[in-house]
Computed example of a mutant assay.
Amino acid sequence: MSIWGKIIGGTAGFALGGPLGAILGAAAGHLVDKIKTIASDPRLGGSGTYYSDQTNFTGGQDPRQIAFATGVVILAAKMAKVDGHVSRDEIDAFKRVFHIPPSEVKNVGRVFDMAKASPEGFEPYAQQIAMMFRGERALLEGILEALYQIAMADGELHPAEKDYLKKVAHIFGFADMDFDRVHQAHTSSNRPDPYQQLGLTRDASDEELKAAHRKLSRENHPDALMAKGMPPEFIAQANDKMARINAAWDQISKERGIR
Results as ranks from 00 to 15, higher is better:
253 S>A: 15
193 D>Q: 02
106 K>D: 11
78 K>L: 07
79 M>D: 00
249 W>S: 06
247 A>Y: 02
91 I>E: 08
158 H>N: 12
26 A>E: 15
62 D>V: 01
220 N>P: 02
190 N>C: 01
12 A>N: 04
31 L>I: 09
6 K>N: 11
251 Q>A: 15
229 G>S: 07
20 L>W: 01
142 G>Y: 02
202 R>F: 01
80 A>L: 01
111 V>F: 01
185 A>R: 14
219 E>T: 07
96 R>W: 06
175 A>N: 07
120 E>G: 04
180 D>F: 09
234 F>K: 03
195 Y>G: 09
211 A>T: 13
117 A>R: 13
109 G>A: 09
102 P>G: 07
178 D>T: 06
110 R>K: 15
3 I>G: 03
253 S>C: 07
7 I>C: 05
49 T>W: 09
112 F>L: 11
251 Q>I: 10
176 D>I: 05
36 K>C: 11
74 I>K: 05
34 K>F: 12
163 D>Y: 05
152 M>C: 10
236 A>F: 08
115 A>F: 00
207 E>T: 13
223 D>M: 12
135 G>T: 06
167 K>V: 01
99 H>L: 12
163 D>V: 06
204 A>Y: 10
152 M>E: 02
207 E>P: 00
53 D>P: 00
22 A>T: 12
184 Q>V: 08
141 E>V: 12
8 I>P: 01
196 Q>M: 15
26 A>V: 12
117 A>K: 13
236 A>Q: 13
178 D>M: 07
13 G>F: 08
221 H>L: 01
38 I>A: 10
22 A>G: 11
108 V>K: 02
164 Y>H: 07
58 T>N: 10
232 P>N: 10
219 E>I: 06
153 A>G: 11
156 E>D: 11
210 K>A: 09
76 A>P: 03
41 D>S: 11
167 K>C: 00
27 A>Y: 00
44 L>H: 09
242 M>T: 05
208 E>I: 06
240 D>Y: 05
240 D>R: 15
228 K>S: 14
26 A>I: 07
55 T>R: 14
91 I>Q: 10
120 E>V: 11
148 Y>N: 09
138 A>F: 04
48 G>E: 07
243 A>C: 03
171 I>M: 04
102 P>W: 02
252 I>K: 07
127 Q>W: 03
227 A>L: 10
67 A>Q: 12
97 V>S: 04
223 D>I: 11
124 P>K: 05
6 K>H: 11
247 A>C: 01
112 F>T: 05
251 Q>W: 03
14 F>W: 06
21 G>P: 00
23 I>N: 02
177 M>Q: 13
72 V>G: 00
39 A>H: 03
65 Q>C: 10
164 Y>Q: 06
25 G>H: 02
255 E>V: 11
185 A>V: 10
102 P>H: 06
139 L>K: 02
